[in-house]
């Protein structure tokens, strides 16, 4: 008897619950501006050049921010929302080229350029050193910090 009542209560609860579906719950927690901006900041305006979506003043971008708010309200995750924008407007909405395929050259070349520079510098210095060893041995002067300090030191010595 007791179990029957409990079962009835559960069914009633489920029926009642289905009358107030999820949207009602979501509306209670409208995503805040900060939550919207946190995602908008990672996206670039698809119409203006080089303007992040969170600060773009155009009407189009305002609507895109509202779209983000709506998607957040629907429970979409950050990645899903960003992917939605990429699918619809292309990779240009991302702050950086997506790391895939040929795009990797945009990430590999910069450090490679610096390393190449270092390599060339190293080789140049090695050549210089080799040349230095071949040329006549110069008497090494006092390892003073520099000419000016050396001159100062010398003046000092003279005064004493």
């Amino acid at each position: 008897m007791k179990e029957k009542r409990l079962l009835f209560a559960l069914v009633a609860l489920l029926v009642l619950g289905s009358l107030f579906p999820l949207p009602a719950l979501a509306q209670q927690a409208t995503p805040s501006d900060d939550e919207v901006n946190a995602i908008a900041r990672q996206l670039f305006c698809p119409v203006c050049e080089n303007t992040p979506l969170d600060v773009c003043p155009t009407e189009a971008c305002r609507q895109w921010r509202e779209l983000i708010r709506q998607m957040l309200a629907e429970g979409k995750s950050e990645d899903e929302i960003i992917q939605f924008f990429v699918d619809n407007y292309g990779a240009r909405v991302l702050a950086e080229p997506p790391r895939q395929g040929i795009n990797w050259i945009f990430y590999i070349v910069p450090p490679l350029a610096f390393l190449t520079g270092l390599f060339l510098l190293g080789r140049g210095l090695r050549d210089w050193q080799r040349k230095a060893r071949q040329t006549a041995v110069q008497p090494p002067p006092v390892p003073a910090a520099d000419e000016y300090a050396a001159r100062l030191e010398e003046e000092l010595r003279k005064r004493r």
């Binding site: 292309g90 991302l94 080229p97």
Partner: peptide, 29 residues
């Protein structure tokens, strides 16, 4: 090297657009 990186970031989107007819963004990150 810093110069090269900046120039690379400025010109890559242009070259990319010519080759693929699509745009990409090189943003602050």
């Amino acid at each position: 090297s810093v110069f090269f990186i900046v120039a690379y970031g400025v010109f890559s989107p242009l070259v990319y657009e010519i080759v693929t007819n699509e745009k990409i963004t090189f943003g602050p990150p």
